[in-house]
């Protein structure tokens, strides 16, 4: 539960900071549980606020270097604007001009891709030179960490990597964290969605394997450890 609450709080902060929507994914079992935890982490930066307007209309969607535009809230004199679901110009007026579309789309992409998401993009355990990396996300992390403990006790050095930020995917950091290890992507769904997503983003090294299983029965550490051992045995790398 605590591991679930932290990303949700962080996503809320990111949404405010980056002026964007944040989508949180939670396992249904977590959604039906309740737990009183510690306070959410403090906001990392204040929301951008607007400067006083000049004579022209307030440029709510001004194209800026960091992609984050000035924003006002109702009640601030001279800073009224319409938030439009249609693509718009820097003042918020609906626009069908290609230049406006590209400028606004570029701005949104820029702010998401250039933002420094810090170290919270993933939870990582184990040595960097481990032979095997168990890669997962969400509620599977507990079973994966336990499986890694069993494998380590049996003499196989394992690194675990649980993604907290799925998009924008921190591809370079992910590949660096995997290093030269074999990868087993562990996830609780029928279609191996994470495995396919990471492949599509070219964020997995060659030879990565998948362990995917649908609910409702949870993945157990023993299943994961067995699958990992079988993978390493097939390579002749088990110790």
């Amino acid at each position: 539960m605590a591991a679930c609450g932290h990303p949700v709080a962080g996503a809320g902060q990111l949404a405010g900071q980056l002026q964007t929507a944040a989508i949180g994914l939670a396992d249904q079992a977590r959604g039906q549980a309740r737990r009183v935890g510690g306070p959410a982490p403090a906001a990392v930066a204040p929301v951008h606020h607007a400067a006083p307007a000049g004579d022209g209309p307030f440029r709510r969607y001004a194209v800026t270097a960091d992609g984050i535009s000035p924003m006002s809230v109702p009640g601030e004199t001279g800073l009224a604007y319409t938030a439009d679901g249609l693509e718009h110009d820097p003042a918020g007026a609906p626009s069908s001009r290609a230049a406006d579309h590209k400028a606004q789309l570029d701005k949104r992409r820029r702010k998401l891709l250039t933002h420094d998401y810090g170290p919270d993009w993933a939870q990582i355990t184990g040595a960097a030179d481990a032979k095997l990396c168990l890669l997962t996300f969400g509620a599977c992390r507990g079973a994966v960490v336990e499986a890694a403990g069993r494998l380590s006790a049996a003499g196989l050095a394992v690194r675990t990597l649980a993604l907290r930020l799925l998009a924008p995917l921190q591809q370079e950091a992910l590949l660096a964290a995997i290093g030269r290890a074999r990868v087993l992507v562990v996830e609780q769904n029928h279609g191996a969605q994470l495995y396919h997503y990471l492949h599509a983003e070219q964020a997995l090294p060659a030879g990565a394997h998948s362990l995917a299983k649908p609910g409702p029965l949870p993945l157990r550490p023993g299943e994961i450890a067995a699958a990992a051992a079988a993978l390493m045995d097939s390579d002749g790398d088990s110790q």
Binding site: P74, E76, D84, G85
Partner: peptide
């Protein structure tokens, strides 16, 4: 005061209304 008024709309011809007003709007 315009800054104390918010006009919210859905989708459709009539829902273009907020963009034509100098108050806070949400389409």
């Amino acid at each position: 005061p315009p800054e104390r008024v918010a006009v919210v709309s859905g989708i459709g011809c009539s829902s273009r209304l907020p963009a034509y007003l100098a108050v806070h709007g949400f389409h």
